[in-house]
Amino acid sequence: MKQNRILVIHPSLNTGGAEKIIAYLVNTLAKGYSVQLMLLKDIEVTLPIDREVKVVIKECYSDIPILGKQLIVSLKALADMATCIENQVKLFEPVLVICFDLRVLLATCKALKGKENMIMFSERADPYENRKYWQYILKSIYKKVGMIVFQTEGAQKFYGNGIKNRSCIIPNPALTRGLGSKQEGCIHRENYIFAAGRMQYRKGFDLLISAFSEVSNSNPDTKMIIYGSGEEKEKLKRKISELSLDDKITLLPPIPNVIEKNRAARLFVLPSRSEGIPNILIEAMMARIPTVSSDCSPGGARLLTSNGEVGLLAENNNIMSLAEKMEYALSNSPQMEEMAVKAAESIKRFDPAIIAEEWRNVIEKQINKEQKK
C-alpha cells in the first residue's frame, strides 16, 4: 500500500524549542508515512532525525520584517520563499503540508493558493502579544488553513468560535534534547541559578536580572548564568553593569545540552512575558531541578506547573513577584526539592507516546477529509 506523503517545512533544525518538537514529530510520522523535511536555511542540523525522513535543505528564508520599512524587499523575499516551497510541493506531491513558523505559513499559503486546506499550522507563539493588524491577518488566514494546532486552551480561545471546527489543542511532549524522556535527579546542588533562551524582549531576561539584583542582597554568594543569544544581549550586558552585577551574572552562548550541564543548579528560572508551552521548563522539571516561572500568557507555564503546585509561579511581567519567588526558593531548599520530585512525576502526563498518538489522530483525520473531496 502506497504511503501518504507529508511535507514538514521549517527554517532550520538547530537548538530551539520548536525545532525539538519538529524533530520529534517527523521521527514519529516516519512510522507510517513518507515524510520529507524541508529546511529553508543552510544551517547544521543538530537534532537526531530518523533515516527514513528525507531532509531537503534550501537557502530561501528571510528574517526581514514582513510589514516594516523594507516592505517591497520583504514581499519579494516572501514571494521567493513561496516559489521555493511551490517547487518542492510539485516534486514531492504531499497530501499534507505542516508548518510551525509564521513566515513559512504565509509563504506556503501563497505557494498553495486555492489549496490551503492541505496546510496544517502549529501555533507556537502567544496570540495576545501580536499587533492588531497581525491579529486580523492571522484570523483571516486561519479560516482558510485546513487545521491549526494550538498548545494551550488560552491560545485557542483567543481566536473565538470562527476557527474552532478547524483547530485542536496538542501540548508539547516531555522530551529531552536527545528526544528521549529520561528523568534524572541530583542530590548535591551548587549555589547558582540559571536560565536559557533567545535574548529577546518577550523572554523577560531584563526582568530576571532586575529580580536577581533584589535577591542578591540577601543571597550575596549566589551566582546566575543566562544562556542565549539575540538582539537584546548588549542591552542585558549594560543592565548587568548598571546594577553592579558583573561578578555575579554570566552570559553564555546557547548550548544544546543546557539542562544536562546544569542539573546541579539550585534553581531554574523562566522569566518570559509570553510563551507557548516552554520546552525548557519541561526539561528542567524532568531533571528534577527546582523551578520558578512567570505566569506568562497564554498559560503554558501554569499548565505545566499544575497552577503552581509543582513549580513556583510569579506574577507575569512583575519584577518584585519574581524576586519574591526566587527568594522563597533559595530559602526553602527542602520544600523545593520535594516540589521538584512531584514535578517530574506530574510531567509524565505529557508522555511522548501519548502526544504522538494525538498528532497521528489529527493528521489522519485531516488526510481523510482531504481525500474525500
Rank of each mutant, 00 (worst) to 15 (best):
K2P: 15
H10W: 03
P11G: 02
V26D: 01
N27F: 00
A30Y: 01
Y33Q: 00
L40C: 02
K41P: 01
D42H: 08
E44K: 08
L47R: 01
V55E: 02
E59V: 03
P65S: 06
I66Y: 03
G68H: 03
I72T: 12
D80T: 02
M81W: 06
M81D: 03
I85P: 08
E93N: 10
L96P: 02
V97Q: 06
V97P: 11
C99A: 08
C99I: 03
F100W: 09
C109R: 14
A111Q: 07
L112F: 11
K115V: 09
F121H: 15
R124Y: 05
A125M: 10
P127M: 11
Y128D: 05
N130T: 08
Y133I: 15
L138M: 14
I141C: 11
K144H: 11
G146L: 12
M147K: 15
V149A: 14
Q151N: 02
G154R: 09
F158H: 05
I163E: 02
K164Q: 09
I170S: 06
N172D: 01
P173Q: 09
Y192E: 08
A195C: 07
R198M: 10
Q200V: 08
R202D: 05
G204E: 07
F205A: 06
D206K: 09
I209C: 07
A211H: 06
V215T: 07
S218N: 14
P220G: 13
I226P: 12
I226Y: 12
G230K: 03
E231F: 00
K233G: 07
K233L: 14
R238L: 14
I240R: 05
L243S: 04
L243G: 04
I255F: 05
P256I: 04
N262T: 04
N279S: 15
I280N: 15
L281P: 11
E283Q: 15
A284V: 05
S297D: 11
P298N: 09
G299M: 12
G300R: 04
L303R: 03
S306H: 13
N307R: 12
E309H: 13
V310C: 03
V310A: 03
N316I: 07
M326E: 00
P334M: 06
M336H: 05
A343R: 13
A344D: 13
R349K: 11
D351V: 07
I355A: 11
A356E: 08
E357C: 07
E358Q: 15
R360K: 15
N361M: 09
N361T: 11
K365I: 00
Q366R: 13
